[in-house]
Design a protein around this nucleic acid. Sequence first.
DNA 1: TCTGCTGTCCTATTACTGTAGGACAGTCGG
DNA 2: CCGACTGTCCTACAGTAATAGGACAGCAGA
Lengths: 135, 135
Amino acid sequence: MIFQIDFKAGKPVYLQLVDQIRYAAAAGRLRPGEPLPSIRPLAEELRVNRNTIAKAYAELENQGVIETLPGKGCFLKANSSPFTKPIRDKLLLTEIDEAVVMAHHLQIDRDKFLALVQERLDYFERKSTNPNGGK
Amino acid sequence: MIFQIDFKAGKPVYLQLVDQIRYAAAAGRLRPGEPLPSIRPLAEELRVNRNTIAKAYAELENQGVIETLPGKGCFLKANSSPFTKPIRDKLLLTEIDEAVVMAHHLQIDRDKFLALVQERLDYFERKSTNPNGGK
DNA sequence: TCTGCTGTCCTATTACTGTAGGACAGTCGG
DNA sequence: CCGACTGTCCTACAGTAATAGGACAGCAGA
């Protein structure tokens, strides 16, 4: 599990980590129960303070993506999403609307958009179904 | 054209404006060539500094959503998106992936997700085709 | 129990971002 | 040409967010 941090990306390091881990989980490159890299070694490898990693992990725990076992480490959760159904619906709707609005402004027509969505769904599904999905 | 600002939303006022205007444009509630509210009156109405509105408009101009005619005002552009095709593709792909990853973590299955996407496409298309789309 | 690992809390500093007010430039109608 | 409107630039201030280092707590193996 290697992460790519871009220090001149403008985006906070801890958020880059959050994104990459969420993405990796959705792509099946990280599997439920699998341990995440421990905070200190990862911090050293990425040349960042430990608290930066800790903040990313804390955020992921809030989102229900990972869980922390005191003294043992952090692990990818099996059943994500601690949120109620109405909240989950709203979260997803917001994301979808953002994509749809973006498509409008980029002048991407409906068919092309739908094709792209299916392609990405395939991409993630294939990866997360295939044990060697990662790379 | 009325905007709803939530001061305790945590989200910056100028970004709330940007979102609402992008959304309104995609929904056809704002039409190409149509003038946006002038900065000062709108600022007064929303109880914000003019520069907060100006910042939102500047951001929208960067995104190619609106254009500014010096001394005259700001207007919704007809052909949005000043970006090259590869950049546009990347922008859209990022949005779509975010939605797909979100769906994964919320445990929304493929069919439900696709149905939601179509529903939102319908929603925006209907609005932007119907002159009284707004409300 | 001691050592070395795990994550966590508290605190401090730094940098940045959001917001604000004053002065300026372009346009238009009297 | 003057006044009232348009948006813009510059500067300043305040709050917050990102990052960092020290000290602490839980677990496991020697």
